[in-house]
């Protein structure tokens, strides 16, 4: 709240000063990254390593540019992101619905929850061969893996959250006449939103990891994983590194920028931080 208010009121001078200090802070925090890049550059420029094992930063950047212009890496990126969002969304909805159900019914809970908890102990990618046999060697199998990878943590997060709802809040709702679906919709669901958002973020990172692993194996359809695998096949290490860079950026941008912000907003709105 205070930061947005500050921005609103700030003059051009204070804004530019703000940007200056922010840049400085960023530099201070990323010294290790800068050192690594520098080392990378020195090692390659001095010719201490075989460029087929480690290309220079410049080469990788150049390749990245070419990939975007000539091999339509943007299409691959788009296909990957679409699959990620689709699979994640399916997994989230399924996980939340099942989590809500298991949290409400003793019968469902006792039967289903241990199974999901058990499945959670198996890395999602181990189910890829199964998905390929069911759905074929194509994007659908990958989508299924992503959805499944999201579903497990999401169901467990939802279920766990339902057991942490304050009993007084539930009693207050009950005393005010809430019951059945109205209670679910207006009390139980909103009460678990903060934990759900944490679950969403976790689900997303699980989905992202599962997706990359699956795409490297199932290379038929467009996708970043396919390009990565292609790079390995033709021995183009600069392509491999360029794609890793893209994966890194996508991961950081979505997890850190989007989800961390969403989480902060919800926590503030739900009075979990900055309260009192």
């Amino acid at each position: 709240m205070s930061t947005t208010a500050g921005k609103d009121r700030g003059t051009a001078a204070t804004v530019s000063r703000g940007i200056g200090t922010a840049m400085l802070a960023l530099l201070r925090k990323s010294w290790f990254v800068i050192a690594l890049l520098l080392l990378w550059w020195i090692v390659t420029a001095a010719g201490w390593v075989d460029p087929y094992k480690l290309p220079s930063p410049g080469d990788v950047l150049g390749t990245l540019g070419t990939l975007f212009t000539e091999r339509a890496l943007l299409t691959d990126l788009g296909a990957t992101l679409l699959r990620l969002v689709e699979g994640w969304a399916i997994g989230v909805v399924a996980g939340v619905v099942l989590g809500l159900a298991t949290g409400r019914s003793r019968f469902l809970e006792e039967g289903i929850r241990p199974v999901i908890a058990g499945l959670q102990a198996v890395p999602t990618i181990a189910f890829l061969p199964l998905a390929i046999l069911w759905f074929g060697f194509n994007g659908t199998a990958v989508l299924a893996i992503v959805a499944f990878g999201t579903f497990k943590p999401m169901a467990l997060a939802t279920y766990g959250a339902m057991h942490q709802i304050s009993p007084t809040l539930l009693m207050a709702g009950e005393a005010l006449g809430a019951k059945g679906f109205f209670m679910q919709r207006t009390l139980i669901f909103p009460a678990i939103v903060p934990s759900l958002v944490t679950g969403l973020k976790m689900g997303w990172s699980f989905a992202w990891r599962a997706l990359m692993a699956a795409e490297i194996v199932v290379t038929g359809a467009a996708g970043l994983g396919g390009v990565l695998e292609l790079g390995r096949e033709i021995g183009a290490i600069d392509v491999v590194m360029a794609v890793i860079l893209v994966i890194l950026v996508v991961g950081i941008v979505t997890e850190q920028l989007f989800f961390t912000r969403l989480e902060r907003w919800v926590n503030r709105r739900w009075g979990l931080v900055g309260a009192r």
Partner: peptide, 9 residues
């Protein structure tokens, strides 16, 4: 209730 038990959202 003692702790108000308002719905925080």
């Amino acid at each position: 209730f003692q702790d108000a038990a308002l719905f925080p959202w």
